[in-house]
């Protein structure tokens, strides 16, 4: 079967084939990424072939200058994450047929990451974040003897296997919407890893971990866009791990942060009025006595006012709000009041 592949090429030494397109830039928020030149190849492969088969075929028999990382070819090593038709995927797990759009498949390095050459991109942002969550066990004392394991329930280990299935491919981070505009965000994979250690019954530092993950750039900077859940090729579902961390952190008393205040304000507004009071949500999340923080939100408020997007000054309750309150009571927990 014939497949057409359009490869976004980048070469810091400036060498391109004459058939490559003119440089093309990326749209905001990736407009700082170096432009790519697109080169089209045609390959003849079996119908069940994956994108990586095509790239290897090109590199081996058509154009040895095409740079692409790959090793296992079976979604175990995590080397071949890239943008395929504008989203993060493993090339070895993406069927060409499913990814052929308008007669071709477009592949390129993600513009959200530093590009090295062609489909090879720099993983420093990924590993820096990984390193930042203290990604190792701080063993609970006393450590059992040299022939003795920690006694823990299989369910407790099983609970961590979802994260342990992570192959560090970077798909989640490269398409993370929060990371796209905030370099400082620890990101989905690192926070999933953070959960893996914080929830490990053999770790002695759960409390310190939860404290540090609750700070700026931590668990509350995720915007719930679900890109990481959708793009993860191994079912790690980083957002779900982040939500578990939030619950652990709040339960451990790490509530003096915008994230918890935001959740509380949100719940309170719905509980008391049956709807969201957007006017008070922002100041409550920021903290009433946080004067600097309040001032920092002013420009946004002014912009909203200009655009006619400011919420109504008077906030009305919905009819039958008592029934909403009952739901809160039934669910119990932090938000029932």
């Amino acid at each position: 079967m014939q497949f057409t592949i359009e490869v976004g090429r980048y070469n810091p030494e400036g060498t391109y084939a004459p058939s490559a397109s003119a440089p093309q830039e990326f749209p905001v928020p990736w407009d700082k990424a170096p432009p790519r030149r697109y080169q089209t190849y045609t390959v003849d492969l079996p119908e069940h072939a994956v994108v990586l088969d095509a790239l290897i075929e090109i590199r081996e028999y058509q154009d040895e200058s095409l740079a692409v990382r790959c090793a296992c070819r079976s979604a175990i090593c995590g080397s071949c994450a890239m943008w395929i038709n504008g989203h993060a995927h493993l090339a070895c797990k993406s069927k060409l047929q499913a990814f052929t759009k308008d007669g071709k498949t477009r592949v390129e390095s993600p513009p959200s990451m530093p590009v090295i050459r062609d489909l090879v991109w720099g993983m420093e942002p990924f590993w820096k974040k990984h390193h930042a969550v203290t990604p190792w066990l701080e063993p609970k004392q006393p450590v059992p003897g040299p022939r003795e394991e920690y006694r823990v329930a299989n369910a407790a280990m099983d609970n961590l296997v979802q994260e342990v299935s992570c192959i560090n491919c970077g798909c989640c981070l490269m398409d993370c919407e929060s990371f796209a505009i905030n370099d400082n965000f620890l990101g989905p994979h690192a926070l999933a890893k953070a959960y893996r250690y914080a929830a490990d019954p053999r770790d002695a530092t759960e409390k310190q971990r939860l404290g540090s993950y609750s700070g700026n750039g931590g668990i509350w900077d995720c915007t719930h866009c679900y890109e990481c859940v959708q793009q993860c090729p191994k079912g790690v579902a980083p957002l779900e791990q982040i939500l578990k961390l939030r619950k652990m952190a709040v339960d451990a008393g790490f509530t003096n942060n915008a994230g918890t205040r935001h959740a509380d304000a949100f719940a309170e507004s719905v509980r008391e009025s049956g709807r969201l009071n957007e006017l008070t949500l922002m100041p409550k999340s920021t903290g009433f006595f946080n004067i600097v923080g309040q001032l920092q939100t002013l420009p946004s408020a002014i912009n909203m006012l200009r655009a006619g997007k400011l919420p109504p000054i008077v906030h009305h309750k919905i009819p039958g709000v008592q029934r909403i309150k009952t739901i809160f009571q039934r669910i119990g927990g932090r938000f029932k009041k």
Partner: peptide, 23 residues
């Protein structure tokens, strides 16, 4: 045995039996 146990102590999430020991 000691080398495998060392990896357990480092944090490998080995499968457990009903008593919580390595299965």
């Amino acid at each position: 045995p000691a080398d495998v146990i060392e990896f357990e102590h480092m944090g490998v999430v080995f499968y457990r039996d009903d008593e919580g020991k390595l299965g």
